[in-house]
Design a protein around this nucleic acid. Structure first.
Lengths: 117, 117
DNA sequence: AGTACGTACAACCATGTGGTTGCAGGTTAA
DNA sequence: TTAACCTGCAACCACATGGTTGTACGTACT
């Protein structure tokens, strides 16, 4: 199954922003590593208030890196590696762009294109 | 040659933060795509002040995604795909973490075979 | 020489971010 | 029912961010 949901620029902003925090990267690391736990279960591992951790989880959720599933009075948090893969694919595309520079250089030498868009 | 410079948590924060902005992603896309241009050359493509673009380039530079090389009165900006690869590797590690969950499950359910790869 | 260009940096402003505390509502356990 | 727990949200604070304008300085062009 190949899910091909295009992410908007704002989606990517949110995605990379969510990854740009040590605590949040640590949270998704634990989640992807096998932990299936509640928000307070996550919060118990960090030396900050519950509300602070809850906000971090909310940021991860809005970025699509994490999903919440109610179980009784708590909500289990689960990692979503598909969004992670999307971010990785974008970086990979950029790297590929670099690799293909030299091919494009050949094309430029043969047939220069108009420089402005 | 494998360059193995470990990035600190703060380095990764800076790296992903630099990627969490549409304008900055656009800049590195153009740079990796083959453009070798000055700061003002970059700025001319965006509908914002030169100083704003200059700040974006500074953020990219502090994240290590870009390097500046003086040529006369201008500074040529060059993309650094190595830092990009570092970010991608981290995401890949996280995905691998997720994948290994199921490999561990397989190992539990199946006869212990010599693991491929 | 003088002028125009490229870059850097400071000051400023509005908004966002990461943290706190406190409160309210739903769920489970005694 | 009552108490304890889990979650969410609002208000607040200090600081960072993304934008602006203005200034300063070195380099290049004529």
């Amino acid at each position: 199954m190949v899910v091909r949901t295009d992410l908007s620029a704002a989606d990517l902003d949110r995605l990379f922003h969510a990854l740009a925090d040590t605590t949040r990267r640590d949270i998704i690391t634990r989640l992807l590593g096998g932990e299936t736990t509640s928000v307070s279960g996550i919060a118990s591992r960090y030396d900050m208030s519950f509300a602070a951790v809850q906000k971090h989880v909310a940021v991860l959720e809005e970025a699509g890196l994490v999903t919440k599933h109610p179980r009784g009075r708590e909500k289990l948090v689960r990692g979503n590696p598909e969004r992670l893969a999307r971010a990785r694919q974008l970086l990979q595309q950029l790297e590929h762009l670099w690799a293909s520079r030299f091919r494009q250089l050949d094309a430029l030498l043969a047939e220069p294109r108009p420089p402005k868009e």
